[in-house]
Simulated assay, not measured.
Amino acid sequence: MTNLVLKLAEQAKNIGVTAAYGEQQDVDGVKFVPVALSYYGFGAGSEGGDDEAAGGGGGGGLAVPVGAYIKTRDGLRFDPNLISLIAVAIPFIWVSGKALSGIIRALKK
């Protein structure tokens, strides 16, 4: 089981930037690089007795496209995917508001 954990850790180390930024694409002479918000998690475990072998593992991930960097004659610009940004921003703003209200309540005491 230890080898499985080491293999997962080695592969996860290389995922970061390649998951957030895709390969450069060229459509009708316009070059762009897709950008995503990505999250990955892995786990493994093993517990066995004298005559028993046990083990398990799993993993999962999520990638939300948030936009693309587009290169034109005028320069480089970021073009957001508004629906994805709103879907990501709403929970973030809600959690930030709850945390801020908790801090304010704690400071008032």
Rank of each mutant, 00 (worst) to 15 (best):
I86R: 05
A106N: 15
R105S: 04
P80S: 13
T18D: 08
P34G: 04
S46M: 05
D79T: 11
I90T: 11
G48K: 11
V35S: 04
G60W: 07
Y40Q: 15
A89K: 07
P65M: 13
G29S: 03
G56S: 04
R73K: 03
P65H: 14
G97A: 06
T18S: 08
A36K: 10
V35C: 06
L82I: 13
A9S: 14
P34T: 13
G55T: 11
V64S: 13
G43F: 14
G45S: 07
A87Y: 03
S101Y: 01
S84I: 01
F78T: 07
F92H: 01
V64A: 10
G43V: 06
S84W: 12
K71H: 05
S84F: 05
G58A: 13
Q24T: 09
Q24A: 11
I15Q: 10
D51Y: 12
A63C: 13
A36T: 07
R73T: 01
P65N: 14
G67H: 10
L8Y: 14
G29M: 10
G29L: 06
P34A: 09
E23K: 15
R77E: 10
A12P: 01
A87V: 11
G102H: 02
K13D: 02
A87R: 08
E23H: 12
I83D: 07
G55W: 07
